[in-house]
Design a protein around this nucleic acid. Structure first.
Length: 203
DNA sequence: TCGAAGATTGTCT
DNA sequence: GACAATCTTCGAG
């Protein structure tokens, strides 16, 4: 179907302008890279969730277009970073064309580079695995905060590159986590073998 | 090792 | 004033 970019290439905007489920699945194995004053830090995406439109009650856009959810309605290939629970940031990649508020939440990464910087930013993590195995954790590890909101993912400091391509057999689809509405929708994609995925629902 | 509850701030009603 | 797509800490077994 859609031609996949060569490894290492920054994912083109067209990549995001597809069904959100497809984007969520294809983002597994890609590399999220964020450059700060500390240097460059990156990780392989091993867990994602799809949030699709205003009819998805778990999607922020379900409440309509507000100042907070505005990036969801924007063009694909942008970042949507929101603040949650008073302490944590969560990173999303906006999908579909303008006017269709959907996005893919990146829930977990496998640390790839800049690990030393991640440790500095997350001194509590006992192991490398704990650096990025959760939405709030990975943002903390990469240094993502409100300044990373509404950035183009095609141009630094925040980019997503093509990486490893997983076979269907290496991927599992499960219900989403940490939400209270539409919990049964299977819109979460994880890499089965990866020890870096966050704790899911207790199976 | 596992389960339960607290923390803390931006956004919307 | 209430809520939220979470993480950390604390206590029990």
């Amino acid at each position: 179907m859609t031609p996949r970019p060569k490894p290492g290439r920054i994912l083109p905007r067209a990549f995001y302008n597809r069904e959100t489920e497809l984007v969520a699945r294809d983002l597994l194995g890609c590399v999220l890279e964020y450059t700060t004053a500390e240097g460059k830090a990156s990780g392989i995406i091993v867990e994602t969730e799809a949030y699709i439109g205003e009819h998805d009650e778990a999607c922020h856009a379900a409440v309509g277009r507000t100042r907070r959810t505005d990036p969801l309605y924007g063009p694909p290939g942008m970042s949507y970073v929101y603040f949650i629970y008073g302490m944590y940031w969560c990173f999303n990649a906006v999908t579909r064309e303008e006017g269709l508020p959907s996005a893919v939440l990146v829930r977990a990464l496998e640390p790839l580079s800049g690990i030393a910087s991640m440790r500095v930013r997350r001194p509590r993590a006992k192991s490398d695995r704990e650096l990025t195995n959760g939405p709030g954790k990975l943002c903390g590890a990469l240094g993502i905060d409100g300044a990373a909101n509404r950035l183009s993912l095609q141009r630094g400091p925040l980019v997503i590159r093509e990486g490893h391509t997983y076979n269907d057999g290496e991927i599992a689809i499960t219900p989403r986590v940490g939400i209270s509405r539409a919990v049964d929708w299977p819109l979460r994609w994880i890499v089965k073998d990866s020890p870096h995925v966050s704790r899911g629902p207790k199976t």
